[in-house]
Design a binder for these strands. Structure first.
Lengths: 189, 189
DNA sequence: TAAGGTGATGTCTGTTGCTGACATCGTAGT
DNA sequence: ACTACGATGTCAGCAACAGACATCACCTTA
């Protein structure tokens, strides 16, 4: 056995979510989370740039997934459709995770403006990367920006709907429906 | 003459923008801004809930404007069109302000992730309020959410374009064009 | 005109978020 | 066995806030 227990990072994430859910984000100090896991505050901040980041651990990986999906989209797809391919890839992964954990996470984030801010920021970052990928596929700047942003909106609203729906609804199809709703809106008189 | 110089709030805002532009957001302390204006750090934080807020002083007023525009939209307008009416109202106001100040502000915000986060958060808040107003007009939940979010996207991208364009481009028409671009995208195959 | 209320500010003090610099010590590679 | 390395601990310190209370020009009202 090593000098320390393994996977402090992962344990910090779990511990943080539990504590936040129980007592609220700003009632919990980084030191408290760290202590419960058996490390020091300093170690917490080595793993996470700031206290909020502990709730967004997998977001880099998710971003990669989305980008791969966009790149892999058939050339015949328009920009918006390509984005949706990427999001579908992400949706499949997220749809597999435990629904109650996702719900708990969403609840914590919605309850705190700072966390909500951070989430929006992550999405904006996805959008920016996705827009880059779309330009590589030949989209114009304006097309790329809009398609990416709209994609993130669809993603976000679909996630919100899914998390609150009952067990036998799957995320990919919720997203599909959201996209249809959106299209109906813009065509509206 | 009063015991203190008038309008500390406004003077703090000006001073902050200048300092941020000159040396960068995180190189400037709240105490420094306050000192330059002749008040204490404590007073700074009485006017602004946190350091970033000093750059978003007028946002409540802007939100009111947008909402009024939405409410005043003719009943025949679809949800998305109603949102755009509100945004046009805001655009007229913003288009009147000094272009160079807006540019400077944008530059400061774009240079700092925390500030960018805050800006997104403000927009999300607008979206949420606008969605509420749309529901009052009879839109469904889904329609309202999407229309509001898309509106903010149009707003944001149009602002970005406008700020970087040359003198004789006016914000309202840039927005109009952005909306057209968006509609073209969603109809795309 | 005297008395008291009000609002914006100053002062003081404390907590929390976060960081730099340096020490420690199992473990893997040579 | 030696060494380089990587994850962590330790310590010290700044900056972002927040609560509690004091101050004092100005306004109101009797």
């Amino acid at each position: 056995m090593g000098r320390w227990q393994p996977d402090s990072r992962g344990r910090l994430q779990e511990s943080a979510l539990a504590l936040f859910a129980e007592r609220g984000f700003d009632q919990i100090t980084a030191a408290e989370i760290a202590e419960r896991v058996g490390v020091t505050e300093r170690t917490f901040f080595r793993h996470f740039a700031d206290k909020r980041e502990v709730l967004f651990g997998g977001s880099d990986y998710l971003k990669e997934l989305i980008l791969e999906g966009v790149v892999a989209a058939p050339a015949s797809d328009g920009p918006l459709d390509a984005v949706v391919r990427g999001l579908q890839v992400a949706a499949v992964l997220l749809g597999e995770g435990r629904r109650d954990l996702a719900r708990q996470r969403q609840a914590v984030i919605r309850a705190n403006p700072e966390l909500h801010e951070r989430e929006l920021s992550k999405l904006a970052d996805y959008a920016s990367s996705v827009a880059g990928a779309l330009r590589q596929r030949g989209a114009t700047d304006v097309q790329a920006d809009f398609a990416a942003e709209i994609g993130m909106t669809v993603f976000r609203l679909a996630m919100a709907q899914w998390v609150e729906s009952n067990e036998d609804t799957d995320l990919p199809s919720v997203m599909q429906r959201s996209l249809a709703d959106l299209r109906a809106l813009t065509v509206d008189t």
